[in-house]
């Protein structure tokens, strides 16, 4: 049976995936800022590019930007 910490970790990972899907944020940008890990880096970048392409093809709305805009307008920051 899965431990409670494992369930917590898996939910965090799922939430991270959902947040990425519903935002305009790109993991590719974050990966390019990481230190070069040689061949491993190439594999990571290839995988992330595939995922980013898949996300773009889904055409999901950028909920994060909409929420950010609403909050900033409400606070008088826009």
């Amino acid at each position: 049976m899965m431990s409670r910490m494992s369930r917590f970790t898996l939910t965090c990972l799922a939430a991270l995936a959902a947040a990425w899907l519903l935002s305009g944020e790109r993991f590719l940008d974050a990966v390019f800022e990481m230190p070069d890990l040689g061949r491993l880096d190439d594999a990571i970048i290839a995988a992330v590019v595939t995922l980013e392409d898949w996300k773009a093809a889904l055409g999901l709305p950028d909920v994060f930007s909409a929420m950010r805009g609403a909050i900033h307008r409400a606070l008088g920051l826009l």
Partner: peptide
């Protein structure tokens, strides 16, 4: 734990 993680996220 799932709810805790969701609140964090």
């Amino acid at each position: 734990p799932e709810l805790q993680a969701l609140i964090l996220a």
